[in-house]
Amino acid sequence: MSRPPTFTPPPCARADRLPTSRGDFAVHDTLSGDKGTALLLPGYTGSKEDFIALLTPLSEAGYRVVAVDGRGQFESSGPDDELAYAQAELAEDVLAQAEAIGTPVHLLGHSLGGQIARAAVLLDAAPFVSLTLMSSGPAQVAPAQQQKIKLLSDALAVMGMDRVWEAMTALDTPEEADTDGEDLRRRWLLHNPAQLIATGRQLTVEPDRVDQLAAVQPLPKHVLSGERDDTWPVPLLDAMAERLGARRTLIAGAEHSPNTDRPRETAEAIAAFWDDQG
């Protein structure tokens, strides 16, 4: 999981609720920007806090940024029905979020969020100025990650969220344990397990929809990742970018979460891409 350095938004942003036609969503919103507006979708087990380190540099670059908790993620509540988290349902949520903040918007999704963003664009690309897929691959995750997700889903089916958290943190390395805190635990406990099971399953069976996405024109596309990634191998992301005709950015020193590993460099690359669409 991404480990944001803080759960407190910077002075340029406000923690808020975004009312939409499909319910309210928790957001961090920088509120203003003269160059445009962006909607940021977090990954599996993640939340809007994963983008906190990007908010100030993207705001300084001239963009209003809205980072959102999807339904069932952290501070956005969701039902206990796995069907409510079908990818098509989550994609409709994204379209409603974009409408609520005011289209057109730049859309960015990290990992699972990238595949949800892709699904939203394939439903209706009209609200979007551009699409950035951050550490988000063409199809299902790597086999080792599929196994981890299966183990987690099996545990969630028979154990409470608190017991699963204890089991996960017991396996952390000393370095990871040092970054664990009450905020991370609280985020985990507020995730709806039905959301985790349903979206985890999606990550293990997602088909390759790159050709469909490539056919969505004109929509500028950007594939950004760290220089190492154990969820989707970097050469696979390279090939996806080529198939999409997308800009390709590799963030040195970053792994699966460049947004938290190298936020300043990541924000600069994102803003440069957005600037080119203005």
Rank of each mutant, 00 (worst) to 15 (best):
R14P: 01
A246C: 11
L244A: 06
S77W: 03
D24H: 12
V223I: 08
L90Y: 07
P233W: 08
T30Q: 11
E265T: 09
A198F: 05
E60I: 09
L18C: 02
Q145L: 11
S76L: 06
G23N: 03
R118N: 01
W188E: 00
L236P: 09
D80K: 13
K221M: 14
D80H: 13
W274G: 03
I197T: 13
H256T: 02
E255V: 14
R3I: 10
T173A: 06
L237T: 03
P235E: 00
L83N: 15
A269G: 07
T103S: 02
F273N: 07
G72E: 08
Q87C: 11
D29N: 13
L151V: 14
R201S: 07
D16E: 14
S257W: 12
Q73E: 09
L203W: 06
E255I: 13
D154A: 13
P5Q: 10
P207G: 05
G160T: 14
T169S: 09
D24W: 03
K148N: 07
V121E: 00
T56I: 08
A38W: 03
V210S: 13
L122W: 01
E75Q: 13
L41I: 12
L58T: 08
V105G: 00
V164R: 09
D81E: 11
T8F: 02
H191C: 08
F51N: 03
Q140P: 00
T8N: 09
P235Q: 04
T231V: 11
R186Q: 15
S59L: 03
E242D: 15
R262T: 06
K148T: 08
D183N: 13
R22N: 15
V216I: 13
Q217E: 10
T103N: 00
D276R: 15
A241Q: 03
M159I: 02
A139W: 07
G33C: 03
V141S: 10
G278R: 15
E49F: 07
A13M: 05
E82Y: 06
V66E: 04
E49W: 02
A119K: 01
D276N: 15
T132G: 10
P258S: 02
F51L: 04
E176P: 07
P233A: 07
T260K: 02
D180C: 11
L55Q: 12
G181E: 05
T56L: 03
R248S: 08
V234I: 07
G72R: 04
D69E: 05
E175N: 14
L40D: 01
G113L: 00
V158P: 06
A267E: 00
T173F: 02
A167N: 15
R248I: 05
L237N: 02
S59C: 11
S136N: 08
E89A: 12
T266K: 06
K221R: 15
